[in-house]
């Protein structure tokens, strides 16, 4: 069963269109939503949560979010970039207003998380650092027994140690409690470490939605000495680098001996696919 199924999610703005976005997050998986700034990651997450009015279907554990909005949202733990709400209120006041919405609220677990995250409920939101705000949002989301965590760039603004700690917590949740996770990020090293699947969005369209391993196995990174070699090899998204040119090649492509080949990372794939996309659009424009 899929924890999250998104079908044909569409949102039209005057200058941007989220175009029939479809993907799923299998139960117990961590899916990373990646793409450059303005690609539509946050719009997708807002559309899933009905923060914005969209067309298309969203189902969480098989239940339609429009038909069962209240029940479905109780299964979801949402963590925005940080906790940007009620800066003048104390964490205690916010928790008191927030917890009654969740019949499954676990005060013991919440208090344990506060200790783990070194958070004091007496503090006001404005007194928290960015990292602390993310941790507070996470503590709220985890304390009501969410089955699906949806996070919009939760690791942005966190120092490397806090990011490591965050990744550990997510992995622990998935392993011990079977939680499913969808999170958007720019920090692909976090994805390499914890994600099972990748959803790659560009210009409001899904380019890739597959297991991470499958994506990494799909391409290899080729290093060319000249642009002519790269063009001849039909490399994808060729760009100049310090020593020659780089481009992606499908894994099964036969290559000449003077081309050096290495494994790809998510960063390489994003950079070269985006470049190929840009070239395509430029060609269409002309």
């Amino acid at each position: 069963m899929n924890a999250l199924e998104v079908k044909g999610l569409t949102k039209v703005y005057p200058e941007f269109t989220l175009d029939k976005v479809s993907f799923c997050v299998p139960k117990g998986h961590i899916s990373g939503l990646i793409g450059r700034n303005g690609a539509g990651k946050s719009t997708t997450i807002k559309g899933i949560l009905r923060l914005i009015a969209t067309e298309g279907d969203v189902a969480v554990f098989g239940r339609d979010i429009i038909k069962d909005e209240r029940v479905v949202k109780q299964m979801i733990g949402y963590v925005g970039g940080g906790f940007r709400y009620y800066p003048m209120n104390t964490l205690a006041a916010i928790r008191k207003a927030y917890s009654p919405f969740y019949p499954t609220w676990n005060q013991g677990k919440y208090e344990k998380l506060l200790v783990q995250f070194d958070l004091s409920e007496r503090k006001k939101v404005k007194e928290l650092s960015e990292g602390m705000k993310v941790k507070f949002a996470l503590a709220l989301a985890l304390s009501h027994g969410a089955k699906l965590l949806i996070m919009d760039e939760p690791t942005s603004g966190l120092d490397p140690l806090s990011r490591e700690e965050f990744c550990d917590i997510i992995l622990q949740l998935v392993r011990e409690e079977g939680v499913s996770v969808l999170f958007s990020t720019h920090i692909t090293s976090d994805l390499m470490r914890i994600s099972d699947d990748i959803v790659y969005i560009s210009q409001g369209k899904i380019l890739v939605a597959c297991p991470l391993k499958e994506l990494l196995d799909k391409y290899k990174l080729a290093h060319f000495s000249s642009l002519a070699d790269a063009t001849a090899s039909k490399a994808i998204g060729v760009k100049a680098v310090k020593e020659g040119y780089e481009g992606l090649l499908p894994r099964d492509t036969q290559i000449s001996t003077n081309v050096a080949v290495t494994d790809t990372t998510i960063d390489h794939i994003i950079v070269h696919l985006e470049r190929a996309n840009e070239e395509e659009r430029y060609a269409e424009f002309n």
Binding site: V72, Y85, Y98, F101
Partner: peptide
């Protein structure tokens, strides 16, 4: 508005 209450509320398990 200053508290970002609308966005916070929309993410709660309530009908919009």
């Amino acid at each position: 508005r200053e508290n970002g209450d609308i966005a916070f509320s929309c993410a709660l398990p309530v009908k919009k």
